[in-house]
Design a protein around this nucleic acid. Structure first.
Lengths: 338, 338
DNA sequence: GAAATTTATGATAGCGGTGTCATATCTAAT
DNA sequence: ATTAGATATGACACCGCTATCATAAATTTC
């Protein structure tokens, strides 16, 4: 099975290389009959254009990079799923770059990676979405970028976000609606954009309901299972413990569930625990967690769609797209005891 | 910042393009002084070779594909981690292909993907590692392949495996050693290679210990949380229920834990439950699971190392490499009640 | 119906490297 | 000293495609 090149097709269809190229790239100014003839030749010969050659001639690579934190989790796999779906549909390939976001040399290392791959565009996930140095680098290189889950909205850089503050607000409204007013909140890392937003929804909901915010009910975690355990120990040993604990991610919530059970506290009978993210573990623990499902895959699809439009130099409808979260009520929440 | 090409470097160093190319590719027959001079020019000019051009001229792409099942989990992210580590170190890029393994058109779809990307090589993960049609396709195309976690050992196709049967054996030995002899086993999907191996370890250990194998103690699951629940319900309603249940993955084990707790059965006091895989969820549930840690990342590193050797046409030390699993004892197992 | 556009097509020169082969220089062997 | 072989380097074609520009044919305009 020898390779079929554009010359073979040209000969077969009785036209010039350039016309083949025009059909390939959907350029205008090809008559309908010619186009048809060429497309038939494609099929008949089983022709596949060589991406290397196209890339060289057009200075494109048909490669899109995905930058994400290396201690990856279900968030990442959903992002990948969405990004790939679009890439595939549009004839691009996805190259993944898990990077340690605390790495001092990130920028320079990533820069050398950029060089060696000629990416057509890059998708940034948190916390990279908010790293200004990185954004500057990409701007300088004129590499198209789309940011996912970014905190700040930067001029001219397109982004896709979810409404975390609102979802957090909604979760608290739900808790209040089933009778809770002693609601604790566990924050995540402060350097993660979502932390602030999720907390703001909590604040808003409580204020609105006229519930005073008790300082001891606000605990600082770091998104890890262990930090959830620590916070739970502190919260559950208060003289007046909360009747509901809202952790800003599911892993911390799982830690709370564990500590509560160890203390013989029944969930949700004695204590309601809720999380955020709808991580796989939220289904696997018992009781399963009431949580917020982020439309991660959908966000990635949208981000990739936007990126490819930019690469193709087509206009974007909007510079920032928001995709809505969804409250999922499972077994870990119940009305407050009266 | 304009692009520096090989011609610029050639002029700067006062040698021909070809000599630059030689230095770039570490070819022999370049004098030490020349090499030094050229390397200095690289740095001074900030030269980066264009991968597209290299690819076109040498019919390489510096791209490695990773094929894995699309309902991805922690297994996949560990595989990615390992594969990437090696790719990066060797100047390759990783392109990911999550595919539905039950898709009828997998082969033809994947084939068209192959065409459009010119991969230098491919890493196959289960259950793709054992799909003969796929292997045939890749063989026909003469694309280097390494299989991870393959069941059958095929001639000439290199593979990296873990000793699942042994690990399963070891787990059972551990259970027996702490006094269990009513040990149930939950199988996974039959089409997944590991299923059989994990079961064989169970068989061997019990036989060796002179424990009769009770048919009802062998349950058929499908690696899902829900199937674990189902199997648990059946097992725990037997007249003489098992004192230990060994599920062949952690998700099923989590399902068992849930059902047991719902029935008021205390783990590990009344029932020991163990899993396989060391999935993240195995740490997040309570009690945390005794399980088998697979050296997944290490397997991927080794697989990628082998693949790159093949691509570079360097000889392989061994055609099949085995990396050992490890038993991790956590909270879900305890001595049998006497 | 002539001039001005628009549309369709091809010839040719790269894109930035590598492969092949020729040539020049150096070392080892006779 | 002479020759054979190894080592170092360069000239140039070529990888498979796209960009530019020229040209021919079809259409519109006045």
């Amino acid at each position: 099975m020898k390779k079929i090149t554009i010359n073979d097709v040209a000969r077969h269809a009785g036209v010039s290389k350039k016309t083949i190229s025009r059909v390939l790239n959907e350029e205008p100014n090809v008559s309908i009959e010619t186009r048809k003839k060429v497309e038939e030749s494609f099929i008949e010969l089983g022709y596949r254009p060589n991406p290397q050659a196209r890339g060289l001639a057009s200075s494109q690579s048909y490669l899109i990079g995905l930058l994400y934190p290396s201690q990856s989790n279900s968030y990442v796999s959903n992002i990948q799923k969405g990004a790939l779906e679009r890439c595939r549909a549009e004839g691009f390939h996805l190259v993944i770059y898990p990077e340690d976001h605390e790495n001092e040399n990130l920028i320079s290392q990533f820069e050398s990676n950029l060089y060696s791959s000629n990416l057509d565009g890059i998708i940034l996930t948190p916390p990279f979405s908010d790293m200004t140095k990185l954004l500057d680098l990409l701007k300088e290189r004129e590499i198209p970028v789309v940011r996912v889950g970014a905190l700040s909205s930067l001029d001219k850089i397109p982004s896709v976000i979810s409404n975390d503050a609102e979802a957090s607000y909604e979760m608290c409204r739900y808790l209040i609606s089933i009778g809770h007013h002693k609601i604790a909140f566990i924050k995540g890392n402060l350097d993660h954009g979502a932390t602030e937003q999720r907390f703001s929804g909590y604040n808003k909901a409580l204020k609105e309901a006229g519930i005073p915010i008790i300082e001891q009910f606000i605990q600082q975690g770091n998104f890890s299972f262990e930090s959830g355990e620590d916070c739970a120990r502190r919260l559950l040993s208060l003289k007046t413990p909360p009747s509901a604990i809202f952790a800003s991610n599911d892993y911390m919530a799982a830690g709370i569930v564990k500590v509560a059970k160890q203390k013989g506290i029944s969930i949700p009978h004695d204590l309601t625990v809720t999380g955020f993210d709808n991580a796989p573990a939220s289904r696997y623990i018992w009781p399963s967690l009431t949580t917020i499902k982020q439309p991660i895959t959908e966000m990635a699809i949208e981000a990739t769609r936007m990126l490819i439009r930019i690469i193709r130099k087509k206009p974007l409808d909007r510079l920032s797209v928001t995709i809505r979260n969804e409250l999922i009520v499972r077994e870990s929440s119940a009305p407050a005891k009266t």
